[in-house]
Design a protein around this nucleic acid. Structure first.
Length: 373
DNA sequence: AACCGTTCCAACCGCACGCCC
DNA sequence: AGGGCGTGCGGTTGGAACGGT
């Protein structure tokens, strides 16, 4: 169905906003709320279309917007989510509290995309560029699997975004402790924390799903760096091969804030059924999550209302984040890593890029019985 | 200082979708 | 059912800022 453009009226101002216009818009919204955007400009005394006002508000004037340089953690999240979701900026933005989709999109286009390209990674597919040559091998099969996973993950994020919006509407005045212990995911993601069992006050949260399937296991430990201002995230990946009772423990530790210091590529051979993450981002939090059932959209939807949603979210994020970053040889991704650092030996460079994608695939493969594949 | 190319980001544009009548 | 409206979303653009010559 067609519709007339909202900004075709003559006399409406376009282009950059002046401080006076900002002030008018702010003052009006503070007093009345925005209500109908179409009607707002006239009421607020602005010669703008409603759409322009909405954009200005949501992308710039809103008080809960964080501006300025993206942290490394934020960069990591963007890359990781973009690998799953593609250019679905609003979905990505739900995982970056206080950042707008527009800002994330801009940052991707101006910074991250170029960095990945320089690493020889296609910023669209997140595949190493010479991957196209290996079309019939397992890698492409894995890629298809990942794509499939991305589809339901995408749907899940949409549902989450809705929850977030509803939560924001309903719970504007929630006391801070509701989210104070949910590391990293906070603010707009607080919806995860509003359900029963959603708070992470308890030092230990355990959830177990019943079932007989080989079980991926996710363990998250938040061991505080006591007395340290900068918590030092530690990722522990525990791989359990299906044919063996032996548990292979692969440990990766380092500062999340220093991508370059994250370990090298040996540990992304985490195998089929088990993965655990250890992080000391948080004070005395220790979460162990045993997943008896494979990951399914249904179970994750259920989880989204409670602790498991939080834990899973965190696990997924931290897991992907650290896998990606530790394995991608992030010499070029870090701001402090100059591009020239990429000029190392050619084989190392190639290996790094290969590991970048493999790390995603390996984590996906850690739940081989998931019906989503 | 002047010019020019590049980078960055705020803002615009047009489409899609849900809701309401 | 279908048209209008409000809003969300992703792609694109214009111009300011910056850096090199």
């Amino acid at each position: 169905m067609g519709r007339s453009p909202c900004c075709d009226k003559v006399g409406l101002k376009k282009g950059p906003w002046t401080p006076e216009e900002d002030q008018k818009l702010l003052a009006y919204i503070e007093e009345h709320g925005h209500g109908s955007w179409r009607a707002l400009p006239a009421k607020a005394g602005l010669q703008r279309c409603g759409k322009s006002c909405r954009l200005r508000w949501t992308n710039y004037l809103r008080p809960d917007i964080k501006r300025g340089k993206f942290s490394l953690q934020e960069e990591q999240t963007i890359i990781q989510l973009h690998a799953l979701l593609g250019n679905r900026w609003s979905a990505i933005a739900t995982h970056l509290p206080k950042r707008t989709d527009n800002e994330i999109k801009n940052y991707w286009n101006t910074h991250l995309k170029k960095r990945l390209a320089k690493m020889g990674i296609d910023p669209v597919t997140h595949k190493q560029k010479n991957d196209a040559l290996s079309s019939n091998d397992g890698q492409s099969k894995n890629s298809a699997n990942l794509s499939h996973m991305a589809q339901w993950e995408s749907a899940r994020l949409e549902a989450e975004a809705r929850l977030v919006r509803e939560s924001k509407l309903r719970c504007h005045s929630l006391p801070p402790h509701h989210t104070s212990n949910s590391h990293y995911i906070s603010g707009s993601n607080s919806a995860w924390n509003t359900g029963i069992g959603g708070d992470l006050e308890s030092p230990t949260s355990s959830l177990t799903f019943s079932g007989n399937a080989p079980r991926p296991q996710v363990t998250m430990m938040h061991n505080s760096g006591i007395g340290s201002e900068n918590a030092m995230p530690m990722i522990e990946l525990v791989g359990t091969t299906s044919g063996s009772s032996e548990t292979e423990i692969i440990k990766e530790e380092g500062e999340i804030n220093d991508w370059k210091n994250l370990g090298n590529s040996d540990h992304h051979n985490l195998t089929e059924n088990s993965v655990s993450f250890t992080s000391n981002l948080h004070h005395h939090d220790h979460m162990e999550i045993s997943m008896g059932n494979p990951w399914t959209p249904e179970s994750l939807r259920l989880n989204s209302s409670g602790t498991m949603g939080n834990a899973m979210e965190d696990a997924m994020e931290e897991g992907f984040t650290n896998l990606l970053l530790s394995d991608s040889g992030d010499r070029s991704l870090s701001d402090s890593g100059k591009d020239s650092d990429n000029s190392g030996s050619g084989s190392d460079y190639y290996e790094d890029n290969k590991n970048y994608w493999n790390s995603i695939l390996n984590l996906v493969n850690s739940s081989p019985n998931s019906p989503m594949f």
